[in-house]
Amino acid sequence: MRILLTGGNGMVGRNVLEHPDAKLYSILAPSSSELNLLNYQVVEKCLIENKPDIIIHTAGRVGGIQANIREPVRYLLENLDMGRNIVWAARQTGIKRLINLGSSCMYPRNAENPLIEEDLLTGELEPTNEGYALAKNTIARLCSYISQEDHSYKFKTLIPCNLYGRWDKFGPENSHMLPGVIQKITDAKIKGQNEVEIWGDGFASREYLYAGDLADCLMHAVKNFNELPSLMNVGTGYACTINAYYQAVAEVIGYNGVFNHNLSKPVGMKKKLVSIEKQEQWGWRPKTSLKEGILKTYLFYLNENKNK
């Protein structure tokens, strides 16, 4: 089977390529310089020339709360254009199977937890990442429209909770909460700092999935594509408070300092936990515990920065 994997140099894409089952397939994973997803003609030409059996669309402009607040236009337009180009080019070139990667940011800010797939587009989005969420919702709906109009096209969307892991972004300008915490506490330990700042009161809760587990889910989806729901959350089934994540990272790293709360900083949604009912019915669960995932991510971070 020939797979076209967009975002092959991103965190999810790299974890897919590292997965043991990746060797079972012929995976084409062009970089953004090799395949400009913002150019429709380039995307269509790539699909015509390579004729993949299935597309896994993981590419996107991804960043944490600071980046989304700072550049909402970029997060809206680039994710919208990339998604539209790959999905519509697949439809135009007759590629029948596609897995689109969404985000739990797609859900309304006040939706009841756990978030079920039917909650999408039923309320106001979280303002701190609204542009990104609008783009992701639009592409998911485009996939469903195409499949509705012609049932021979099976364009499906997976909606993972927050991710972390190997090949993540760790800098405060672009990172999500958990990888940012790993960098922050590691730096504090190395520099001998006795205090680390937490944005907000730390009682907001988040669900985090190790990226290697999402890669495992994607490989399972390729093998069991026909049984895969057209729209499905991917998560762990539990959420932890921000304070608990800081404590878990400190324990793994061996940091013994104290945490101070900056109540002037934004924290986003108070709670975000996706329902995994469909995921469990489909027959998949993540394998990596939180502390195991933190340790793997921490060791990756140390290795990537040892020569800097």
Rank of each mutant, 00 (worst) to 15 (best):
G257P: 06
Y145T: 05
V181C: 13
K223C: 12
S103I: 01
E18T: 06
K23N: 14
D216F: 05
L125P: 13
E173A: 13
L163W: 00
G283W: 10
S32L: 02
Y145N: 06
N224S: 09
Q92P: 01
M82K: 07
C217E: 04
N100G: 13
Q247E: 14
S147I: 14
A111I: 03
E71C: 03
I139S: 15
G237E: 07
T241F: 09
I182N: 08
R97H: 13
M106P: 01
V62W: 07
Q41D: 15
S205W: 04
L302F: 03
R91P: 02
P108I: 05
S147G: 15
A22D: 09
K51S: 12
R206K: 09
A111P: 12
L77I: 14
G200A: 01
N305W: 13
E126P: 09
V181H: 12
Y153P: 02
K272G: 02
A140I: 05
C217S: 08
S264D: 13
L121P: 00
L273R: 01
I159D: 14
I69T: 01
G60C: 12
Y153K: 03
S147Y: 14
K156W: 05
S103T: 13
G64R: 01
Q148D: 11
A250W: 07
L178Y: 08
L218F: 02
S289M: 05
T297H: 00
K96Y: 07
G192V: 10
M106D: 05
S32D: 08
L98P: 04
L120A: 11
A239G: 04
P108A: 04
H261D: 04
Y145K: 01
E195C: 02
I159E: 12
S230L: 02
E124D: 14
R14H: 08
E49K: 14
G237A: 07
K51N: 10
F300S: 06
D168K: 01
G192L: 06
G10S: 07
I139L: 15
T58L: 10
M232L: 06
G268S: 13
N162H: 09
L158I: 15
L76S: 14
L214A: 05
W167F: 15
R109Y: 01
P72K: 00
P108T: 04
P52E: 08
L5K: 03
V249L: 11
K51V: 04
L228E: 11
A135R: 05
V252P: 11
Y210W: 06
Y107G: 00
A111D: 07
R74Q: 13
R109P: 00
E18G: 01
L4W: 06
Y145E: 08
K271E: 15
Y132A: 01
I294Q: 06
E149R: 00
G63C: 05
V252G: 14
A22R: 03
V87N: 06
C46Y: 15
G200Y: 00
V16A: 09
